[in-house]
Amino acid sequence: MTYLVSLFLLGLIFGLVAVASNPAPYFAALGLVIAAGAGCGVLVGHGGSFLSLVLFLIYLGGMLVVFAYSAALAAEPFPETWGDRSVLVYVLFYILGVMVVVGWFWGGWHEACWVAIDELKELVVLRGDVSGVALMYSSGGGLLMLCAWVLLLTLFVVLELTRGLNRGTVRAI
């Protein structure tokens, strides 16, 4: 389990390296999906199965929208992948940077640090994060209302930003 969680942590970092190294948006979104999947694994390894499920369903579901956008905008005939020279330089640079920092901290990481917290517990049915999230409907009701309000506000923001047929200078049709 410790091995698996470490693998997922590595996947998180490499996913962000894939995003940050400036490939075409099409592939950057793919890197983000990988990072989000690895993040789900990390959360499961630490006992947050509900939060992991939320991340998987909502975040990746939202990511799908961005992914659709990037697929629609991938107008270049040859989008840059991580194998291209300009991107590959950055990938190697970032990986090298991460390795240098890991080397800096390596001595301080004792064996116990690597153990995911979930391994130290017995098998339980009710997870802490489920009851914690359920607090949102009782004592955290104000924040829930605020969130709903902000989502409504965002609807108006998006509508105002994209509204109007005669707006803008460049028209496709």
């Binding site: 605020l146 902000v150 506000l153 923001v157 105002e160 930003l161 707006r167 803008g168 200078t169």
Partner: peptide
């Protein structure tokens, strides 16, 4: 942080009110 985000979200359409490039 939430307050800052609400602030940013609310000013954005006010800034593009003219829809000028």
């Amino acid at each position: 942080w939430m307050g800052l985000e609400i602030n940013t979200l609310a000013i954005i359409p006010l800034m593009t009110r003219q829809h000028h490039p």
